[in-house]
């Protein structure tokens, strides 16, 4: 598997805290201060109780593989050259599942239930900000 440089992420006003956090090496989730619910993806409101401004917090970065697929075919660059790569839902200790990659092991070694820990690929932007793309590797 060729080392994949993830395409530059697009951050909206609501989601940039997530990508900025990843640029600092932190996995950022939201927790509503009114009802306590943890949510992903990030939003300007709590989608459970509709309270404003859920508070960002740094998640543990630990989780398990909920399900996965080894991608053998994707015609789009830069993924075509990176095949086979492992797409997965990783279930975080805090509850939400992230759609992400499992890296740092042979694709054939990935299993459902496998403990994994977050890893980040930084992205330098032309505006000087650093974003990051969260991936996971075997714990």
């Amino acid at each position: 598997m060729a080392d994949l440089q993830h395409p530059l992420v697009y951050a909206s006003w609501e989601t940039r805290g997530y990508w900025e956090g990843a640029g600092r090496g932190e996995l950022v989730l939201q927790r509503c201060e009114a009802c306590g619910t943890v949510q992903h993806k990030p939003r300007a409101i709590c989608a459970t109780c509709f309270a404003d401004a859920p508070r960002s917090f740094v998640a543990s970065g630990r989780g398990t593989v909920h399900t996965y697929t080894v991608t053998h075919q994707n015609q789009l660059p830069p993924f075509a050259a990176a095949c086979p790569y492992v797409m997965a839902y990783v279930e975080l200790e805090e509850g939400p599942r992230l759609l992400t990659h499992v890296v740092g092991c042979d694709p054939t070694e990935v299993r459902v239930g496998m403990p994994v820990v977050v890893d980040f690929q930084p992205q330098e932007r032309t505006d000087g900000e650093v974003f990051g793309v969260p991936r996971f590797r075997p714990a």
Partner: peptide, 17 residues
């Protein structure tokens, strides 16, 4: 898309999950 496009999730891949 902003959460899937960095990872290259294909249509087939989504069903494969």
């Amino acid at each position: 898309e902003s959460f899937t496009s960095p990872y290259g999730l294909t249509t087939v891949g989504s069903y494969a999950l």
